[in-house]
Design a protein around this nucleic acid. Structure first.
Lengths: 229, 229
DNA sequence: TTTATTAATGTTGATTTTACACTTATAAAT
DNA sequence: ATTTATAAGTGTAAAATCAACATTAATAAA
């Protein structure tokens, strides 16, 4: 019978997370050195298996929390990878998720214990299985996301300069942006609060610090817009 | 141990297909009346279980072929649905795919045997499990796709009028479009061949028939563009 | 006091998008 | 043969958006 449950094959279902962070060096991803076979010692996305009583979103959250100590992180499901031998041990389908986190907030202790490490996108090592492809797809999705939703709240420190925001967008889009045009486009979204405070690290003159206006930011998250940068 | 394969739970993996068609009545989806429990007699997307030695894309193609007799149909993976009790019989994760097919080409015999039926999007019945949500998400994706890839080759008959193409886009986007602006935007894509032949069904004057220029169409499929309608 | 450095700021021309209405071809009706 | 009814086909102008671009301002360090 075409659709009988009993005769259907069961498979392992994994969740792999592409965790993006951002600092002065640019856009980064968190990778882990695998401490078990196969591919022990090689670099990998952080991941784990779905439990029987768990939904995929929760598995992704659990895995992220296990390795970084972070909670309440926005994650988005990306794609299900199902090549037959993608995992040589056993047939495993993996569903990828990506997360955006403030790189300053992670639990350094945990990351160290798990032999995890931040890598700049540009010089990340080769990854096991199909994880390179997962990362590429996550970057494409992130890039798309910038054009329809505000971004930055998740990746920047609470207070940031316009330059930091510009450099974040440049890192994600992987292209140079015109500073004046960028600022006016961002300002037209009306999601920023300009503080009276200045950051004096980067220049003699000092540059104003901003925060995101959380209410307006989240309102924009609900309704797509178009942002051509 | 956090990542041992042996202790991980295995699950059933299903594939459900949202099959879009288009005719003079508008945009439609193909649904099937389930002939097995649970929810026997209710309407459902067509679907099936992933086999152990099969990748998801192939499962989607197989399922589509089983119910429609069609081959070589473009399908795109959408999303993995994993609510614990989404299928009351057994824990099943379902990966959805959508397909665009020429409604004239399906195998009517097969569809009849499977108690499948085309429904206009607007008056489709309630579906089992989370299939309504799958359909909504598929429509959103299809809408997005129209803005970055040409569309129509898959959904229209070989020869079609400008009006048919316009109405296809209107059905997908669910909004009225300005005829003159639409035509000039489509023409700027340079994917159509205007024939000398006219369709005399729809008006006294008759309207020119077009075909897609397959080479240019497929070239455009490879490289995204932006089409604001 | 000078110098060096990054921050801040607006305008203009080019391009794209939107809104909008009349003429044409033909079949059907008389 | 003429009239009538119907959808097809076609272009322009105003508005909005985008892209390119250079000077002044504030401050710390020398």
């Amino acid at each position: 019978m075409l659709n009988s449950y009993s005769s259907a094959d069961k498979v392992l279902l994994a969740v792999d997370c592409i965790i993006f962070g951002f600092d002065h060096e640019g856009l980064k991803i968190l990778l882990i050195k695998r401490d078990f076979e196969p591919e022990k010692g090689k670099w990998s996305l952080i991941g784990g298996f779905l439990k029987r009583d768990e939904v995929l979103d929760d598995a992704a959250i659990r895995i992220l929390n296990t390795y970084t100590g972070l909670n309440d992180i926005y994650m988005e499901q990306l794609y299900a990878y199902s090549e037959i031998d993608r995992d040589p041990v056993e047939r495993t389908i993996s569903v990828s998720y990506y997360a955006l986190i403030n790189i300053e907030n992670h639990n350094a202790e945990l990351i160290k214990n798990y032999h995890a490490q931040w890598f700049s996108i540009a010089d990340a090592p080769n990854l096991i299985f199909d994880h390179n492809e997962m990362v590429e797809q996550a970057i494409r999705r992130l890039r798309y996301r910038t054009s329809i939703k505000p971004i930055g709240f998740e990746l920047l420190p609470e207070k940031f300069t316009m330059r930091q925001l510009l450099e974040l967008y440049e890192a994600i889009l992987s292209k140079e942006l015109d500073k004046r045009n960028f600022i006016s486009k961002i300002n037209s979204l009306e999601i920023l609060n300009k503080l009276d405070e200045k950051d004096m690290q980067s220049s003699r003159k000092g540059s104003y610090l901003y925060t995101f206006n959380k209410e307006k930011y989240e309102e924009k998250l609900l309704n797509d817009f178009v942002l051509n940068l």
